[in-house]
Design a protein around this nucleic acid. Sequence first.
DNA 1: CGTCCACTTTCTAAAAAGTGGACGGTGCGTTAGT
Length: 497
Amino acid sequence: MQLETALKQYYGFNNFRPGQKEIVEDILSGHDVLGMLPTGTGKTLIYQLGAVLLKGRALIVSPLVSLMQDQVDQFKQAGFKRTVALNSFLDHSDKRSVLHHLKDYQFVFVSPEILQNKYVRSALLSIDWSLFVVDEAHCISQWGHEFRPHYLDLAIIKKELGNPVCLALTATATVKVQEDIRNYLEMRDAKVHIHSMNRPNISIFVESFSQIEKKQDRAIDLINDLQGPGILYTNTRKGAEQLVSVLHERGMQDVSYYHGGMEQDERLLVQKQFLNSQLQLIVCTNAFGMGINKPDIRYVIHYHAPANVEGYVQEIGRAGRDMQPSAAILLYHPSDLEVPFHFIEHELPDDNQIDYILSDYEALAEHTLFERLQLAGISETGQRFMEYHLNNAGVLFEKCVPEEKRELLKKILKKKIEERKREKLKSLRMIEKWIMDEGCKRNMLLKYFGEEEIAAMDECCSGCQGELVRFYGKQEKEINTYHEWEDELKRLFRQEV
DNA sequence: CGTCCACTTTCTAAAAAGTGGACGGTGCGTTAGT
């Protein structure tokens, strides 16, 4: 079948969006693909169509359960009814029933962690898969090394599944992240489709402060003046909560905070209110944003510098999905970098802790290495990291490790930690350099992502004398507040269709 | 490194100032027994 015919039949569209067709073609001819496409290009369509035309099943690895639930709903609405997500939202009996009837599903969403479950694994292995999809594939590099190490094991399950065609999709990946993806998914021969990460409708502004007290006033002025809705990122949970209480005191009621320390239902509520335009501003840590597809976000303020350029680009990329002019504003003070610096220095165990965990001290002889991890006083992320590597070495539940192996492990782990720290510090220095450099902010980002520089644009960035003033004005918001909620609902429906 | 909190010290009786130390960001899974 012609691809265009299938597109028309299943979606009613006449033309593919840039990048879609080439990837579908590669998939159909049996090639692995690494696709970097800007958000809103319709990445989902690629593997929906791919699976349909291959007359097979797709296993889709997705990073967040909330995102998975949304995707399953969207698939069903789009007519792909045989779709399911395997995650902790399922209770015991539902899970058993889904696993038992797994062959009846065409699209199965999973987290990297649940792939470790032996029942899930054996159910998956008992049927044929045409596509192995890794959505938000930059997570392999961004989270896999320490925070969610099971991201590094995806190649193992892929092989067990008989090496179905592998499709890795992301919106932002530096050359280094692309390499990580291809290495850890063992798809070195993959066809690579990289599209520019440039978002011409987002103007980029950096403002430096030498007095930290002035930053809050500036942020409040911006929030007052800028056309919303907007997102403001802070470094810490407490910082987000405090800023919101200041804004509430000043009479701004349509503002809430969001961070990973909140209860699931509270997070969901805030997110829904924001998506429904009941909130004009969300003040949050980097927990907020992935999978958020609100088209009309007009600005993203960074109240602190983020820890790396990739994270920054992902965060500002949430603005202006509707292609309308939008602003990214970073309010920088040198002390911003202290929090990320702290995390880099302390999230992984230091040499003493490694020595302690792998020691032959008599006092520890009664404890397995797993138990020693809690005793060593390392961070939760550090524990995850160590659990993963000690388990791979087959010693996690041992009380005693032969001396030779012990010394080798110490050496390997210390080296690995040292490398990770070095890389992260390099990223931190890189964003600091980007902030301080007075050249074109956009071209520096393009260069960082391995792209060619572009000719000067209008309203490009603070390095190119862009003017923030044109993003001021609150007209639309005032009109919105007079809408009856029924009208608002209708408007949202129309927007989605 | 800076901030916040609990606790102690100050010095003289109620509250302020000092000190030590813990903490700081991302998420999956969890299947025990009222």
